[in-house]
Simulated scan of single mutants.
Amino acid sequence: MNSKLNIVVRVDLDHAKALVIAKGHITVHSVNALYVVAKRANSIRQGLYLELDVSHAVVDDEALEQLQACSQTHHLPALIDPYQKPCDISVLAPRRRDTTSRPELLAA
């Protein structure tokens, strides 16, 4: 998988929805780029429902926690949006891979 972050935005003004699709590797540093795009999409129309689709990205745990916190508080981080405009945001999380477990060796 490419580590470069690729973001596509699809907006449906008739239904007041925006879909932000991210692919690549999302880290605690690159998540800020995603926030900036989400802020711009959120500014298009008041009451816009914003869905962040990171299901095709590799997302570091800390970055995913930050995205989920935004979803729960309905605000983007203050560093990105100092005015704290309400943001109805939902995160479509990546498929989880269990990287902590290793196959057990069978004793003969």
Rank of each mutant, 00 (worst) to 15 (best):
N2G: 06
S3W: 14
K4H: 13
L5P: 05
L5R: 05
I7V: 12
V8G: 00
V8W: 01
V8Y: 08
V9W: 05
V9R: 10
V9H: 07
V9L: 07
V9P: 01
V9K: 05
V9D: 06
R10F: 01
R10V: 00
D12P: 02
D14I: 12
D14W: 08
H15M: 09
A16V: 12
K17L: 03
K17V: 02
A18T: 10
L19K: 11
L19V: 07
L19F: 02
V20Q: 11
I21H: 05
A22E: 01
A22D: 03
G24N: 10
G24H: 09
G24M: 02
H25W: 12
H25M: 08
I26N: 07
I26R: 05
T27S: 11
T27Q: 02
T27G: 02
V28N: 14
V28Q: 11
V28Y: 14
H29F: 09
S30F: 10
S30L: 07
V31S: 00
V31H: 06
N32E: 08
A33N: 15
L34A: 04
R40G: 03
A41R: 13
N42R: 06
N42V: 04
G47F: 06
L48A: 03
L48F: 03
L48I: 14
Y49L: 11
E51I: 09
D53C: 03
D53Y: 02
V54E: 02
V54T: 12
V54H: 03
H56G: 00
H56K: 09
A57M: 13
A57R: 12
V58M: 05
V58G: 03
V59F: 09
V59E: 06
V59T: 07
D60G: 07
D61Y: 01
E62V: 13
A63Y: 12
A63R: 07
L64R: 04
L67D: 04
L67C: 02
Q68S: 04
Q68V: 15
A69W: 13
S71H: 10
S71D: 03
S71F: 06
Q72R: 15
T73H: 10
H74W: 11
H74S: 15
H75R: 15
L76V: 03
P77Y: 05
A78C: 13
A78P: 00
L79D: 11
I80S: 05
I80Y: 01
I80P: 03
D81R: 09
P82G: 13
P82E: 08
Y83Q: 13
Y83K: 14
Q84I: 04
K85F: 01
P86K: 07
P86A: 06
C87R: 07
D88H: 15
I89R: 00
I89Y: 03
S90A: 00
V91L: 00
V91P: 03
V91N: 01
L92T: 08
A93F: 06
A93P: 14
A93R: 13
A93M: 13
P94I: 01
R95T: 12
R95L: 15
R95D: 12
R97W: 08
R97A: 09
D98H: 13
D98W: 13
D98F: 14
T99S: 05
T99W: 08
R102K: 14
P103W: 05
E104K: 15
A107D: 11
A107N: 11
A108V: 10
A108F: 09
